[in-house]
Write a protein that binds this DNA or RNA. Sequence first.
DNA 1: AATTCGTGGAG
DNA 2: TCTCCAAGAAT
Length: 356
Amino acid sequence: MTTPPHAAPEDAAPRLLFWYDRNRRDLPWRAKPGEVADPYRVWLSEIMLQQTTVPAAAPYFRAFTERWPTVRDLAAAPLDDVLVAWAGLGYYARARNLHKCAQAVAAERAGCFPDKEAALLDLPGIGAYTAAAITAIAFGRKATVVDGNVERVISRVFAVEDPLPGVKPKLRALAAILTPDERPGDYAQAMMDLGATVCTPRKPKCMLCPWSDWCAARAAGVQEQLPRKAAKADKPTRRGVAFWLLNPDGAVLLRRRAEDGLLGGMTEVPSTPWAGHAPGDAEIAESAPLDLPWRSLPGVVRHTFSHFHLELGVVAARAGDGWRKAEGLWVPVDRLGGQALPSVMMKVVRHALAHA
DNA sequence: AATTCGTGGAG
DNA sequence: TCTCCAAGAAT
């Protein structure tokens, strides 16, 4: 580690904590002043908040904690119940790892989360950020928490010009220098709140910032340019055709996706493979769950994943007496809500119901 | 080290 | 419409 470009004042951390005490946000997972943090709730919230906004995670957090109040309750639940409850939140490996982690903590640690970063890192779904966050917020132990907010704050305060993600180790080292011994949990949350509400990606509210007087980026007038980021690859478009098939009972044919990879373990409307080119008639017939006179519905379902766009045509048919030969599960239309349907598949369902 | 993994809101 | 992006992890 090189010498910081400029020194932080001795009272940097106390000033941030002073700001935090006066701007504390009331979030569903946040212990109120004086309350003892519940490691289960801290862990659950941190998993849900990975790459996810507070408004998106909040209703899921309420639903999970009401249904599964303890880590043992969550561990005892079938994975499929967890996937159904997680449906719509995205990054479904989080849900699978959440369940694995709960089972590990319940079975091997008597339901108690470890309070050290190294042990936390051994658990599924817990990486450097989450291990530090749990250590600091749930157990009140010193740890340097570095998420996207902290990276932005640090890159600005020290006017770090090197682009992400390569500069991450340097930002972490600088963040560690600032981390105080006192109030580790509050400091971690204060850093993230500062980034989320004041030191924002666009139009940072420097007038409200407790660190504005020593922020190197602000002094240079480059706060809106930092942190610099490497250009990201553009997203290709993949195309496919989904099969909306009803049986004589009015149930829809669904399938369970492979346990790993995109939407792993989730439920889907059967479809052709999603390829760079639209499937031809032969490919559609090849993938069809039954050999039927499929009629194509008007329009297309568009969805954007983390790394590609998807355009899905929809074809529909009614299965006759041979409907039992189709591979998959038949679900009554009014019970689709009980399925682990990710958002893209909810779009397909809505499209089919609107046009079929 | 570079990819793969979702989603919905903001601008 | 389109880009960016939000409390990252696993491989």
